[in-house]
Design a protein around this nucleic acid. Sequence first.
DNA 1: ATTTTTTGTTTAAACGATTAAGCTTACATT
DNA 2: AATGTAAGCTTAATCGTTTAAACAAAAAAT
Lengths: 344, 344
Amino acid sequence: MSKKKVSLKDIAQKAGVSTALVSYVLSGKEKESRVGKEIAVEIKKIAKDLNYQPNHLAKSLRSGKTFTIGLIIADLSNPFFANIARIVEDEARNSGYTVIIGSSDEQAEKSWDLLNVLINRHVDGFIIVSSEGSEKQVYHLKEMNIPFVLLDRHFAEIQTDFVTINNFKASYDAGAHLIENGYQHIGLIAYKSNLFHMKERIRGYLHALKEHQLVMHKHWLKEIRFNYIEKEVKAAIDDMLSADIPVEAIIFATYGLAVNGLKYINERQLNVPADLAIVSFGQAEGFDLYYCPITYLKQPMEDLGKTAVELLVKKLKNPEQGMQQILMEAKLMIRDSSTIKVAT
Amino acid sequence: MSKKKVSLKDIAQKAGVSTALVSYVLSGKEKESRVGKEIAVEIKKIAKDLNYQPNHLAKSLRSGKTFTIGLIIADLSNPFFANIARIVEDEARNSGYTVIIGSSDEQAEKSWDLLNVLINRHVDGFIIVSSEGSEKQVYHLKEMNIPFVLLDRHFAEIQTDFVTINNFKASYDAGAHLIENGYQHIGLIAYKSNLFHMKERIRGYLHALKEHQLVMHKHWLKEIRFNYIEKEVKAAIDDMLSADIPVEAIIFATYGLAVNGLKYINERQLNVPADLAIVSFGQAEGFDLYYCPITYLKQPMEDLGKTAVELLVKKLKNPEQGMQQILMEAKLMIRDSSTIKVAT
DNA sequence: ATTTTTTGTTTAAACGATTAAGCTTACATT
DNA sequence: AATGTAAGCTTAATCGTTTAAACAAAAAAT
C-alpha cells in the first residue's frame, strides 16, 4: 500500500529530463541555471502531483548541514528547563531547525557523552546549559569550529556567545527588596558550585547586605551539594534558624532549592512570612499553590530561549557572525512571602 | 585546526586496501566476508588511531534506518509530559536511539504538522500522546507502515499498540476512596473531550458513585474546555459549591485542572479538606508545596515511558512483532486532602 | 557564411557507507 | 597435469541530492 518515496529521479523520468534539471528547478535555481520556462513549470507540476518530499538525509550528506540543533540542558524534568526546551524547540522549528534534547543531570561526564552523540549525529550547532566542570567541552567545540551558544550559564574565563540573566543584579534585587521591607537577618541557600552564575548569585546577595551596612553572619550563607539536596537544605534551614542571630528571611538561589526548602518549612510548621520571609529564583506553578504566594525572580524564559536560538541560527547562516554576550534582566515579582514587615 | 572527519576511504588509503574491506571489518562482518586476520587487525588499529566515527547520515541514507524516534506529546512545559519525555529520551538513548520531541498543544493540526516534519526527517518510529481528533494521523501511520506506539491515551475504535494506565480503575479508585472516607457529595472536574482516557475517567467516577448507591447530581460533573481552563474551572467550582446539594469533595481529572482549581480554592479561602476534600490525577512537586498534602493518583511514569520505548524498539527490530496493548495501574497516594471525614 | 555567444540540457563526480558480484591467487583434489 | 574450491581482496552499484563542467543547438554578431 505505502507507495514508496518519490525521488528526483522519478520526477525526472516522468518529465523526460535529467535529475539535474529537476534539482535546479525544485531548489529555486532555475534562473541561475537558465532552465527552460515550460519545462520548469512542468517539473513543478509533476513534483506537486507526486507529492515530492526531498530526502533530508541525502541533502544533509551532500551539504554537511542537517538543520538540526543539539540542546543540552541540566534536566528536562525540571520545569525551568522544560520550559526553556519548549521555547527553543518551537523557535527552532520556526527557523526550519529540528532540536535534539539531552539531559546532563548536571554531570559533566554525561554532558560530554551527549555532546559526542550529537556531534556524531551531525547537529549543526548547540545550545548548552553548561554543567560544572564542562569547560573542556566548550574548548572542544571551539576547536572543532562547531557553533554554539551557552544558555543560562557561562564561564567567566572563556570567551563564548551566551545568553543569561544578570544573576548578580537579580540576587542583589532580592536582597535589597527584603532589606527595604524591614528584614535585616537574611540568609541565602545556594548550590555549592564553581559555576559562574551561582557565584554571581552569592555575590549579589553579599553586595546587597554590604551596601545596606548589614553584617553577614556566617551561618546565613549555605552552599548545598546538589546530590544531597534534601538532607542539606533541611540542615541549612535548621542551622540558620538556630544561629545566635537567626534569619528572618531566606533567599533560595534556585527553584529546586526552594521546593525542598518550602516543603521542610511546611514540615516544621513555620509560617511564611510571619516566621520566615521567602524570596526565590525561578518560577513554576508550584509557587502558585503555596498558601502564601512566593516572591520570586522571574526570568524572561521566552526571551532567553528565543534569543539563544536566534543567535545560534545567525551564526549558522553566517559563520563570520561576531560573538555576542547577552545579559537579560530578571524581574522581581513581589508577592506576600516577603512583604509583611513594614519598611523601616 | 579542526582536523576534518575521517572516512572509510581515509582508513582504506592508509591501510592500502579498498573501502569495502574496511567496511567489512569495522561492521564486524570479517568472518562472513573472510577478511584476512592480519589486515583486519591492522584496519582496526588504524581506525582507532584516527578516531574514526562512522557517518550516521551516510549509513542512514543507505540503510533507510536513522535510529531516531519521534516523540509527540501534548506540551513539554507540562511536568507530566516533561517527565515522560525525560524517561523516553534516556531509555531510547540506552537502546541506541535518538529522540526528537514535539509539542502538539493538544491541537490535532499541530500534531499533524509535527508528524510530517518528523516523517520527513525519516524517524524510524513514533511514540505519540494523541490529541483529540487525530485519528486520521494514526490511520496514516498505519498505512505508511511506520511503527508507532500510543502513550497515555489511545483510541477505543482503532487497533494499535499502546501503553496507558487503566483510567477507569484509577478514577473509580479515587471515587471509592472518598466514599469510604465518608464523602457522599463528590464532584469531578474533567476536560470536555472525546479522548478515550477522559471518557474513562468520567466513567470510573460515575461507576464509583453508582456502585455505592449514590445518586449523582447534575451539577457535580463538569467538563472544562481546554482553552478556557481558568475561567471555566472557577465557574465549575462556584457552581458545584452553590448547587442545592453542594459537593464536599472534588476529583480533578488532570494535574493541570488541579493546579487551576487549587489556586482558586486558595483564592476563595476555602480550607482543604475541611471545606472541600481533594483527589487529583497526576503528580508534580506542586502538590508537595500545598499546605495540605494532596491525595493523588500516581501514574507509573517510569514504567510507562520505558515500556513504550521497549515496545517500539521491539517493533523496529522486528516488524513482525505482534500488537501489544498494555494497561498499567495508577496508585492512589492517600494523603491529608481526602481523609478528614471519618468513615461511616 | 562563419564565428561567437547564449540558451537549455546532460554527464558525471561527490557526499560516506554498504554489499553483491567478480577477480586473483593459492591450495587441495583427482 | 588438470580441475575444483576456497581464501582474500577489489569493483562497482546503490541510497538521493547537488553542482561544476561539458555539450549541443539556436541566436546573434561578424
